[in-house]
Amino acid sequence: MPSPPLQSGSRRHTRIIAAWLLLGCALVAATLVVGGVTRLTGSGLSMVDWEPVSGVVPPMSAEGWEREFAAYRDSPEYRLVNRGMSLAEFKRIFWFEYAHRLLGRVIGLVFIIPFAVFLVRRMIPRSLIPRLLLLFALGGAQGLLGWWMVRSGLVDIPRVSPYRLTAHLALAVLVYALTLWTALSLLRPGAGKGDPEAARGAGLRRGSAIVLGLAALTLLSGGFVAGLDAGLIYNTFPRMGDGWIPPDLFGATPWWLSPFEDRTTAQFNHRILAVLLLAGVTTLWWACARRARGAARPWAHAGFAAAWVQAALGVATLLLFVPISLAALHQANALVLFTALLGLTFELGRAEVSGARTLPGGGTEVGPTASGG
């Protein structure tokens, strides 16, 4: 997956744009973490209206809070789950969802205002503009998808659709990945096009891309685990109950919907994917330790460490019946692991393997080790 040439003009402008994109990555990551905590605390359905502009201002008076609470009392969640909740208890769940929505709005402002300024000042390379417009469109779609998700829990059953929850998560991860990849392409140009060492790194790059895809799949399977509350059953490890394969696997009707609608199957699949991911990351790390050079090595080490931390957090979260603090750390570290693997895949695409040395201009120099002599 080579990076297209995005640089042109002033290096200072390039660094500014890259820093702006990295700020966007940080905000998206924060939104993902807060969104996870919102889900874990059961706060996602506390705001029953979507007001993109006026909703920026929270209730500022006792009357405002009473109106907000009255609207919530008309929702299925209050009637079926939280009947008798006090105003103080409502405020606690309200603020989590409010922070999540506010971060989404902040991301929009942090993107559109500098983007307009950069365009007016002609600081953005023409080749980069379509990608930035795509990111803006995906960000807007994420807001709409988030409300579509919340709406699924405001009708009859006070629980958001696992399908919509996972779609919301998937789009957020996609926006994060595209933004980070674009920032790295600006900061680290010169993917090994036509480089004599490119072929030598092809195997590592393919392996890294496969493991990155597996990490994304595992992360999304976690969305179904969260949406189905599947972490609250079979709280044993490595076995599920008394056996390796639970007796009620594939319990949905029809059976092929079980990975998305059956709690046992969702947890079983997440476990299998997590074990495969841990093995894949460890194998990739070992291969990179032998062959990779330059900036790829620290990314590989970071991915290896994050994978084992993630496994420990996942097991602890399961055994302790999903405490909010551990579950939130597990979700946050999933993004750390994904980031490390994305950075590794990017760097391996620059053909920094087996003695290829990066030159100041972005090219590579083949040393004796690389050439075999």
Results as ranks from 00 to 15, higher is better:
Ser3Gln: 09
Pro5Thr: 15
Ser8Trp: 08
Arg11Ser: 14
Thr14Ile: 07
Thr14Leu: 07
Ala18Tyr: 08
Ala19Asp: 11
Leu22Val: 15
Cys25Asn: 06
Thr31Ile: 08
Gly35Arg: 03
Gly35Cys: 12
Val37Gln: 02
Leu45Trp: 03
Glu51Ser: 03
Met60Gly: 12
Ser61Arg: 11
Ala62Ser: 15
Asp74Leu: 14
Arg79Ser: 11
Val81Asp: 03
Arg83Ile: 00
Glu89Asp: 15
Arg92Leu: 09
Phe96Trp: 13
Gly104Phe: 00
Val106Lys: 04
Gly108Phe: 03
Ile112Phe: 14
Leu119Gly: 11
Met123Ala: 15
Arg126Phe: 06
Gly143Asn: 00
Trp147Lys: 02
Asp156Leu: 10
Val160Pro: 01
Thr166His: 08
Leu169Glu: 01
Ala170Val: 08
Tyr176Ser: 04
Arg188Val: 08
Ala199Thr: 11
Ala199Gly: 12
Val211Gly: 01
Thr218Gly: 12
Thr218Leu: 07
Ser221Pro: 06
Phe237Gln: 12
Trp255Asp: 11
Pro259Asn: 08
Glu261Trp: 11
Ile272Ser: 09
Ala274Asp: 02
Val275Gly: 13
Gly280Asn: 06
Gly280Met: 09
Thr282Val: 09
Leu284Asp: 05
Trp285Ile: 03
Cys288Ala: 14
Ala292Ile: 07
Gly294Ile: 03
His301Trp: 11
Phe304Arg: 02
Phe304Ala: 00
Gly314Arg: 03
Ala328Arg: 00
Val336Thr: 12
Phe346Met: 07
Ala351Ile: 04
Thr364Leu: 15
Val366Cys: 10
Gly367Trp: 00
Thr369Met: 09
